[in-house]
Design a protein around this nucleic acid. Structure first.
Lengths: 189, 189
DNA sequence: AAAATATAACTAATAACATTAGTTTTCCTG
DNA sequence: CAGGAAAACTAATGTTATTAGTTATATTTT
């Protein structure tokens, strides 16, 4: 065979992300991953810190992609337009990358520094888009939680098939965000 | 030893629910479950349909408990009081039974009849509490999705440690629900 | 009360997986 | 061109779920 296949942490995470999106988070096994990469499972340990380490790296990678999706979607917009666009970007990413999105919240090592940093970036992005509403320090924190809950709730429920009825999901999400913004005075202190 | 330990599907699911809440969903292995029940793993197959079947039963059980929590919390109330109380009941259940709650959305067999039925009961409960707002057929469906997303989003993010800052979660949830209700005109058609 | 039956436990065995230890091969460097 | 670091390998172990086949027990029937 061919030793020195030329792996590296990057290629491994990319391949793992593909598997995650194709088969879900549970499909990401070192056995399946090694098979896809044309390598034996133990070889992966030269590049990643076991399955747990891989999952953490996947979560970080997912958060980066999520940030990109949200950021580029809301680029150049402001006010409710920005919030709505960001929400749609969030939902679109979760739909397009179900496994990767799932992994962003299932990291085994929640204390990982890079993971925390990427999570903070996403939070900051949400904070930014709510900034114009001038809610005050505390109010803003509560509102960020609320908006993030809406976004994650929609993404997660769509993924789990919680929305069985054939009714446009984008409409539901848009209306919910609009309702949230229409009542955002509740957060102002 | 003691043959005829006297298991039964009920005892098994209860024990599994305990493990789930103590160690999370992943701790629910047939090995751990059998050990707790003083039995060998294969014996469980006389009562449950493998790990997948057990998980489905756990999900059903969790949904029943969730329904109870939501129902009893909002009992006798109406309007925004009812919505808020139901939301708090939802969050409290998810906090008290993290593993069981997690399982309600991770059922392996989403087509299971009982699972669908229990899920529908929960949805109907949410529908009922939004009834007074007279949103119309479509609007009501969208609003139910929105409220459910808020509730699940909060529960899920709290569980995953997504709310790191020490800021009262109940306040965040209350304000978000109030904002949602304040802007609920968005759903009216 | 004794025999027959159904059921629930068991042991044994297999397959998939993660992981560790130790070995060989290859690439790069000096 | 030789030597060493790194990356692949094989072999082996432990955990898990699951199936097959066996034994023991409780219940039912005669």
């Amino acid at each position: 065979m061919s030793p020195r296949v030329g792996l590296g942490s990057n290629k491994i995470v990319m391949a793992a992300a593909e598997i995650a999106d194709e088969q879900g988070m549970e499909g990401v096994t070192l056995a399946a991953l090694a098979a896809r990469l044309g390598v034996r499972p133990p070889s992966l340990y030269n590049h990643i810190d076991g399955l747990a380490g891989l999952r953490t790296q996947l979560a970080v990678h997912g958060l980066k992609q999520l940030y990109e999706a949200m950021s580029s979607a809301s680029q150049g917009l402001s006010g409710s337009d920005a919030v709505l666009a960001m929400g749609k970007g969030y939902a679109a990413f979760a739909k397009q990358h179900p496994g990767l999105y799932e992994m962003t919240l299932q990291a085994p090592d929640a204390d990982n520094a890079e993971l925390i940093e990427e999570g903070d970036r996403v939070l900051k992005l949400i904070t930014c888009v709510l900034e114009p509403y001038r809610l005050g320090e505390q109010g803003e924190l509560h509102a960020v939680r609320g908006l993030r809950s809406i976004l994650h709730g929609f993404a997660s429920l769509e993924q789990k098939g919680g929305f069985s009825i054939s009714l446009d999901l984008n409409v539901s999400l848009s209306a919910t965000i609009h309702a949230f913004l229409a009542g955002i005075d509740q957060f102002r202190e």
